[in-house]
Amino acid sequence: MRVTSFALGPLETNAYVVDNAGRALAIDPGGDPREILDFLRDEKLNLETILATHLHFDHIFGNAALAKATGAPIMASRADEFLLDTPVGGGGFMGFPKVPDFEFTPLEEGPAEFIGLACHVLATPGHTPGSLSFHFPEGRSVFVGDLLFYRSVGRTDFPGGSLEALKRSVRDKIFSLPKETVVYSGHGPETSVGDEELNNPFLSAFAD
């Protein structure tokens, strides 16, 4: 399992391509996906799935174009669908462009398999009601969107956000993973479960 990141869109959202034996999936293509498409072509990868950690505009702007170019289905939580009718989801927030329309397959918490890899889909609300995290045990990695960042956490002042729900999600779902698990966030550098559990000022044992 290989992880390649791309900083896309005006907010430099981390989009990820995960590949395994010629098969690939994309997570949160938040801007023009040409870099991703070039990478897929150069590496001779077949994109099978597009996963959304949540439905904020800066994580989904490239969904329609990437799906059209590859035929890959988009998967996201139905609990976030209402956000597509708001500026922070459908675009227009702070003057940012509208998000091109796309259809998605509802995805719920539970075991799954993508590109031949076992995945635990985790419901991790807080940043949004339908925020999902994707844990790949074989790759010792979890993709958390804007739930958790290096030494920080996601905003909870957008529609449906809840700081208490976010803290509960991190502590119950993310901090229960092995300490060495790499945390791939929606913005900024990667970190690890153990590092954030010990050092994140919003979530350490001293935070409350």
Rank of each mutant, 00 (worst) to 15 (best):
E113L: 02
E108H: 08
R2A: 15
L11V: 10
L198G: 11
G126W: 03
I27S: 00
E108D: 15
A26S: 04
E35V: 00
H187E: 05
A207E: 05
R151Q: 12
P137A: 13
S77F: 03
G22Y: 05
F136V: 13
F61P: 06
P125N: 01
K179T: 15
T49N: 04
P87A: 01
Y184F: 14
P137L: 09
F6N: 02
D195I: 08
M75R: 15
S169C: 01
R168M: 09
G90I: 01
L25A: 00
R151I: 09
H135K: 02
A112V: 12
S176T: 06
T181F: 08
D28H: 12
M75K: 13
L25I: 10
D172W: 11
S204D: 14
P10Y: 04
L84K: 14
A118H: 12
P189T: 12
A112N: 02
T128M: 06
E48N: 02
G161A: 04
H120L: 15
A24D: 01
F206A: 12
F57C: 10
G31W: 08
P159V: 06
S152I: 09
L84D: 00
F39K: 07
G126S: 05
K179C: 11
K167F: 11
N14Q: 10
G154M: 00
R140I: 08
T86S: 12
L8E: 07
N20D: 07
P100E: 00
F61S: 03
M1F: 14
L177S: 07
V170E: 00
D208N: 14
H59N: 04
V193D: 03
E138C: 06
A118V: 14
D195K: 12
F93V: 02
F202W: 15
L8C: 08
A123H: 14
D19H: 15
V17L: 09
H59A: 06
V88M: 07
P29T: 09
S185N: 02
L107K: 01
T13H: 07
R168V: 00
R168H: 11
K98T: 10
G110I: 06
P125Y: 06
F114Y: 10
G89P: 01
E180R: 13
I27W: 04
M75P: 00
E81R: 09
K98Y: 13
V3D: 06
T86K: 15
F39W: 11
G89D: 04
R41Y: 13
A165C: 10
P201I: 11
V17P: 04
E164W: 12
R41F: 04
L55D: 07
M94I: 09
G110D: 02
L8A: 04
F134D: 01
D195N: 14
S192I: 03
F82N: 02
V170Y: 08
F82M: 08
V153I: 11
G116F: 12
V142D: 01
E103Y: 15
R151W: 03
P111Q: 13
S162P: 11
F202T: 13
P178R: 10
G161C: 03
N200L: 07
P87H: 02
L117P: 02
V99H: 05
M75F: 12
G145D: 05
H135A: 01
P178W: 07
